[in-house]
């Protein structure tokens, strides 16, 4: 068995450290070692996108990374999306207003992917939103509410900038 290694990274603004076997998946470390269970596991092979986080600001699958690879990185999970005072992020607010979630299981991954999408393309067309969100699977909503929400959030974020 490989020696446990130290890992330390910034997550949602706070530095967290731990010791882990090298094979431990980043998503397991985030959920089990750090207790941040908002990031979900849906397939463990990079297709469903439920585990999507922002890794150094960019959306990535946390089931396809080892925890040790996050050493020194900056990570944002769904728990870090709202403002410190609890004000929802425009995407969260728009998801709420547009009935963009039902069971809520894919929602964290969907939000993180949408964050990245709007960062690289602040005014996406509906087609671009659908293409961008095809990175995350949802089985409840038929995606319509999600697409509407991302569009609304994009409008709001642009007008507030």
């Amino acid at each position: 068995m490989a020696e446990p290694r130290k890992v330390s990274f910034k997550i949602n603004g706070a530095v967290r450290e731990g010791t882990t076997e090298p094979r431990k998946l980043l998503v397991d470390f985030i959920r089990d070692d750090l207790g941040l269970t908002g990031t979900h596991i849906g397939c463990e092979h990079g297709i469903c996108g439920a585990c999507t986080i922002l890794f150094n600001g960019e959306a990535a699958r946390s089931c396809l990374m080892l925890a040790v690879q996050a050493d020194g990185a900056e990570i944002t999970t769904v728990e870090g999306l709202a403002a410190p005072d609890g004000t929802l992020h425009p995407l969260q607010q728009a998801f709420w207003e547009h009935h963009a979630l039902q069971c809520g299981f894919c929602t964290p991954g969907m939000l993180m992917a949408a964050c990245d999408l709007l960062r690289v393309n602040p005014s996406p067309t509906e087609e671009e939103i659908r293409t961008g969100l095809s990175a995350v699977l949802c089985r409840c909503t038929g995606y319509q509410g999600i697409v509407d929400a991302v569009k609304a959030a994009a409008d709001r974020m642009r007008s507030s900038n």
């Binding site: 959920r31 269970t37 908002g38 979900h40 998801f95 709420w96 009935h99 979630l101 299981f105 939000l111």
Partner: peptide
């Protein structure tokens, strides 16, 4: 078409699913 009371928890990652 009321907004759902279920949503805020789920949106901020505070949902409690079996694995959590």
């Amino acid at each position: 078409p009321l907004k759902r009371t279920e949503d805020p928890r789920l949106l901020v990652g505070d949902g409690v699913f079996i694995a959590d």
